[in-house]
Simulated assay, not measured.
Amino acid sequence: MVRRSRQLTLNTAKCVACSLMLLLSSQVAASTSLAQPQSMLMPHALMPNAFIASALAAPYSMVATASPKLELNGRQFQFAPAQSSMASAGHSPNSRAAASPLHVPSRPPGIASSWLVELKAHYPNLLLHYLAPLIAIAFVMQRVYRQASTLSRTRLEQAIDERTQALQLENLRLQEMSHRDPLTGLKNRRFVEEMIAQDLNRVDRCYDGLLLRNEQAPSKADLLALIIDIDHFKPINDTYGHLAGDRVLSQVGQQLTTLFRNYDYVVRWGGEEFLVVARFVDRQEINQLAEKVRHAIESMEIELDAKRTIKITASVGAAPYPFSTAQADMISWEQVVHLADMALYQAKTSSRNTWFSYMGSDQLPIPDDPQLDHTEIHRIAKVSSKPLSRQSLDLRRASL
């Protein structure tokens, strides 16, 4: 922008310089075309009939300081010299014809011509000398105005673009803040609700018409929902304080981000619960991922401060989307999350520090209006779990 402004300023200076040179050259040409500068009398027809004293007439009888030689029918003529008074010019006050300012040698005295007609007939060249520079200056000023308008419009557009970019960045920052949990730095529930629709559409396209084409289920086309809940989180808050509880949540969130890929969703679901959405993986990996999460949290040492560390465990509930490959459209994503929460509840009520998973089976048809509760889940889903080992139970009790 600075370079453009300098270029426009340089072009404007060049145009003004050219105009001044043109005006100067025309003035020089006009001056050289003048022959013997003489005074010009005002036409007598414009004067009053009464005699004007020479002392008063002299200052007002001069309207020009020079008159050019002009030609009329090939013969030169010129204006009569200005006199200080009409009497000194040899004319009587009552002689109107003799006071004509144009004196043509071939024209008999006493015959007056129109002063305006003579001026129009014999001054076109002189007018052009002054008109051409004015036209040139007008063109230059028009060009300068256009360049200034262009520069102003360019600066305005640039300011608008910069403001628009700033607003877009601010909107992105606000959107990022609305999608992120301030304590753990993880995504929040709102983020999943807004972003999951795109992933669901992609999965649905993979399974559409699967039975009609008589093909096998696609590989790595599923979404796996895992809900993780920290065991005995309330006693940690009651024993060590809420600041210690916040440290536990933050460190568990960091651990979960290291277990999954960058494009998987690791979300703080609420309270001491976390939701992980493993995107576009094989549904048969659900139990391995659940055990991976359980074992990683069990192996953690939570630093409460410089002197104290504790051990924790977690329970995991998991379910895939689509829930059944044979009936991919029977269970919605919201129902899959509800099934994962049901599996988590079963893990919490059994022994904790374990995982449960629910997955549809081709041998278990899903009714049109399935009842998703603990009494009916075994009729539509295959249930898998890992019981709590004695060693893990002893470690948990020792940490508390």
Results as ranks from 00 to 15, higher is better:
I236V: 15
P37S: 05
A99G: 15
P370I: 07
S92H: 11
A148F: 14
D264A: 05
A97R: 11
L10A: 14
A296L: 00
D238P: 00
T257H: 09
S350L: 08
Q284E: 15
P81T: 01
S61D: 15
S357K: 09
D231M: 02
H242L: 05
L243V: 10
M21W: 03
F139Q: 03
Y60C: 06
A97E: 12
V248A: 09
L8P: 03
A45P: 09
P320R: 04
K382W: 02
N287G: 05
R397Q: 11
A35E: 06
L211M: 06
L128K: 05
R75A: 07
T150Y: 14
C206H: 15
A53R: 10
N171W: 07
Q142S: 15
R153D: 15
D369Y: 12
E176I: 06
A314L: 01
R155T: 05
G209M: 02
S357C: 11
A319E: 01
V2Y: 09
V336L: 08
A55V: 06
L102T: 02
E176T: 14
C15G: 15
I331G: 05
S100W: 05
V336K: 03
I227N: 09
S324N: 11
L344C: 01
E376T: 08
I377G: 04
L259W: 03
A296T: 01
Q76T: 14
M359H: 10
E193F: 04
P218T: 07
T9A: 13
A13I: 11
Y263L: 12
A328G: 01
A296E: 00
P37I: 00
T154V: 11
S25A: 13
R189H: 05
N73F: 14
V293C: 02
H232G: 02
L119P: 00
V63T: 04
R390Q: 14
G253R: 04
S384L: 08
T184N: 09
V248W: 09
S178D: 06
A53H: 12
S25C: 13
F274S: 03
P218M: 07
E376P: 00
N262P: 01
P59L: 10
K234V: 01
T9C: 06
E303Y: 10
S88G: 08
V16T: 09
H295I: 06
L10W: 13
P322N: 05
S26G: 07
F260M: 06
A197L: 11
S389R: 01
M330H: 13
S332W: 04
A318Y: 06
S324H: 02
E71F: 14
P133K: 00
T32M: 11
R397E: 08
Q168D: 03
M195D: 07
I52S: 03
L23W: 02
P37H: 06
I111F: 13
A87R: 13
A132Q: 03
T184K: 12
N171A: 12
E376F: 11
W115Q: 09
D282S: 13
N287Y: 01
R261W: 04
L134F: 01
S149G: 12
T354E: 10
P93G: 14
V293N: 03
